[in-house]
Amino acid sequence: MSTIRRKPGQIVVWVLLALVTLFAAFPIYWMFNTALSLTSELYATGQDLWPHLERLPRIPGSLAAVNALGLLRNSAFIATGTTILSLVMATGAAYALSRFKFHGKGFAGFFLFATQMLPQALLVVPLFALFVTLGLINNLSGLVLAQTAFSMPVATFIMKTAIDKIPYEIEESARVDGCPQLGQLSLIVVPLILPSMAAAAVVTFFDGWNEFLFANTFISSAEKWPASVGLAQFMGQYATPLSTVMATALVFTLPALIFFLIVQRRIISGITAGAVKG
């Protein structure tokens, strides 16, 4: 590439990059901007392009008015439960898939992948029937159980990829030193894959945090709604000011943004190690 030919090309690259970054950021910015707008501006005089930062102090009050904290607490409960349950099962499964030979292993791997094909909307019907029998309707723990079925395979993939990368010799030498297999898992493997476990934890946590379909179907009383359902309920009605809805959406979104940015590298390597053969 000569410098002469490079220059117009570089400008195109920068323009494209600016456009795609704007595209990615705008809806989040608009959420923020709308949260700081007055209803009269939104529907009559027009929304300003620049945010009214001086109205930031109003946000806590409007969040309290819709009990945003209660909604987020329910989301956090579902998310935490899903994370713990998923990671406990996924750690064992990932270790088994990575380090053991056994009959049906190929099938187990396929089974885990096949779960990605099943629509939640299909399982919601029979799960509804199952949960009625088990008394898990209108119960946050029921949502944890349902969501874990979808999140745990993903956590397993992320951790299996991480364990595959650890040289077996490390465990082998521990074994020679008399360390039992389960000790190798907990003392050697787990510490080495902690960053990937953290990534798996973030992914499963926000699966539970974001989950909408099961919650919308299984939860009937408003005080048990997670934020996803609460927000969707605001959408259809005009009683809640739009700025309040957007402020709630924003506090619902921010934790996800922050945590995903922290662990993004690990998620990427987990996602890609399997998909990219290079």
Binding site: Y43, L257, Q264
Partner: peptide, 30 residues
């Protein structure tokens, strides 16, 4: 820039849908 490009991926779907409904609003949407 890469962090910003990841925003959509991290945004909860319900929150994303909500803001898009407003962006698409017929009379006042951007």
């Amino acid at each position: 820039v890469r962090a910003i490009l990841l925003f959509p991926y991290a945004t909860p779907t319900v929150a994303a849908a909500l803001v898009f409904v407003w962006i698409y609003n017929r009379s006042s949407g951007v």
